[in-house]
Design a binder for these strands. Structure first.
Length: 187
DNA sequence: TAAACGATTAGCT
DNA sequence: GCTAATCGTTTAT
């Protein structure tokens, strides 16, 4: 395993923009978990602050979703179906509820580790990276042990409708790496 | 205080 | 391809 390339970590400013723009640029970047390993992002979904009924932020701030309204570049973790921990990266400036959900990644150089098969599906991402509920609200970096690294990879990105939600399904806010096998559904 | 729901996955057919 | 499992948060009494 290679050490974290701190100088290549994306700055917080990267996240201080519209979630759909951040989402499309996150594809191909490396998500690294300290002590576990990393993967290249192949599929993410954007959740917007307005006009997006599927977003947890749509009905205002609650104790659960407060992290979505926090500073950009921080982490929003929540429990889905009482079972799965889903990892989100907070976008926009503080006070605006917006985030990008990490749905899938392809593994990097850990043949027999927990990342060996990558993760197709947001719950599997949380499990593979050792995401815990207490990471909620923590910034990317040493505090959370999670890093987003830009290694210069610029894959072709496709956009389509989102998955697993009951409202706002028509919005083309799911982004994935063209041709990748590591997406949560067949292309 | 009680009931319903969900940004899903595993397992069986 | 289809269905059950599972439990914290939200919303209604």
């Amino acid at each position: 395993m290679t050490p974290v390339a701190l100088e290549r970590c994306v700055p917080a400013d990267f996240f201080a923009r519209a979630a759909d723009q951040v989402a499309s640029e996150l594809i191909g970047k490396v998500l690294w978990a300290n002590g576990i390993g990393g993967g290249r992002l192949t599929e993410v979904e954007a959740y917007l602050p307005e006009g997006d009924p599927a977003s947890h932020a749509a009905r205002g701030v609650t104790p659960r979703n407060a992290a979505m309204f926090g500073p950009p570049g921080h982490i929003y973790v929540f429990l889905s179906y009482g079972v799965h921990l889903l990892l989100n990266l907070v976008c926009e400036r503080q006070g605006v509820g917006s985030a990008v959900l990490v749905r899938a990644f392809e593994p990097l150089d850990t043949p027999s580790g927990p990342l060996g098969t990558g993760a197709r599906g947001p719950g599997l991402v949380g499990r593979a990276l050792g995401v815990r509920l207490d990471m909620n609200g923590a910034p990317l970096g040493p505090t959370s042990g999670l890093y987003v690294i830009d290694d210069g990879n610029r894959p072709k990105v496709m956009a389509t409708t989102r998955i697993g939600i009951s409202q706002g399904q028509h919005l083309p806010l799911r982004y994935y790496m063209a041709g990748s096998r590591f997406v949560s559904r067949p292309i």
